[in-house]
């Protein structure tokens, strides 16, 4: 019985694999958003723009793209119609 259980478990321990893949993926996602100052930069920009135009909180997006040795800071601001 115990031996049987052992083989059964070996055969379908996909949960262990899932955990391993997730740990790497999540660590990458958490790093992946670019430099850590981006969220604050985005908030500051939003505050400045709101001095002049009433925009939604998701109107400003900030991204860093890497192009060879160059880093490009990309800003996207959507104004209301």
């Amino acid at each position: 019985m115990a031996l049987l259980d052992f083989f059964k478990q070996r055969k379908s321990n996909s949960a262990a694999l899932a955990k391993e893949r997730l740990q790497i993926l999540v660590a990458h996602d958490r790093r992946g958003g670019g430099p850590s100052y981006l969220p604050q930069l985005q908030r500051d920009l939003l505050a400045v723009i709101r001095k002049y135009v009433a925009v939604d909180s998701d109107a400003v997006s900030v991204n860093v793209e890497r192009d060879g040795a160059q880093e490009i800071l990309e800003l996207n601001i959507i104004l209301p119609e």
């Binding site: 949960a15 899932a18 955990k19």
Partner: peptide
Amino acid sequence: RVKRGEMLALEDVQEI
């Protein structure tokens, strides 16, 4: 399903 190793255990989800 957790016991059979097919599903992430609670502790794993919490840990992540």
